[in-house]
Design a protein around this nucleic acid. Structure first.
Lengths: 110, 110
DNA sequence: GCTATAATCAACCATAAGGTTTAGTATTTC
DNA sequence: GAAATACTAAACCTTATGGTTGATTATAGC
């Protein structure tokens, strides 16, 4: 059982590893087996499997058993949560400028 | 001199640490000295300073010397870059569904 | 000028993280 | 059913990370 209500820092930490970032990029092009993901990475299958586990824990992908393969599929929810979070905090500056302008206008009205 | 053209995984890694995530949230409310950031974290000033350094390296904030204090200010660019990235990859699934639907429609037209 | 304060630097320590190898479990294929 | 394939699990190793302390620098305040 996997927890899909991952906290945002776990998602960021998972994406903060270059290898895993590449995996996510690869998965955005379609579903991939663990072997597919390992192939271009110059890494053992066991190593890749561990990375996939981290991404799964972070809620970034699902792993489905299909025959002897495990098919990985990206989950948009976690990425969307990360997108929302960063969008919220990247907007802070504009908000501050807006507030500043408003304050200046108010001051001039006095 | 700080490199502001940080690669995306460095930004994610910086945000993947709970303490640093809290610092960013705190900074979104306004500029803060390193001491301000350290205070609520039950951590030495030296420790907080190191975290601030990581955030600065990732391009997430700037540190300005003002008297004997260092004033930290969030930089929206890095957060925006992260937002763009996650938005792009969180959209993958809808794109795939759209493509799938289009393919089905086309097939029905034959 | 002395003392206190804010922060960084350097050295160090414990634990986490990224990787490997070796085994082991299903599943496919012949 | 034997052999190959795809993967996971566990043990292990090395390095990175997150934290500390102690010393040092720069500024503020009396």
């Amino acid at each position: 059982m996997v927890d899909y209500s991952t906290s945002i820092d776990v998602i960021f930490r998972a994406l903060g590893e270059p290898t895993r970032l590449r995996m996510v990029q690869e998965l955005s092009r379609g579903e991939r087996t663990v072997g597919d993901l390992a192939a271009p990475l110059d890494m053992t299958l066991a190593g890749a499997s561990k990375h996939v586990g981290v991404l799964e824990q972070a809620g970034l992908l699902t792993r489905e058993k299909r025959g002897r393969e495990r098919v990985c599929r990206l989950r948009s929810e976690a990425l969307h949560a990360a997108s929302e979070w960063t969008a919220k905090y990247s907007a802070f500056w504009n908000d501050r400028l807006d507030a500043l302008e408003a304050a200046i206008r108010e001051e001039n009205d006095d």
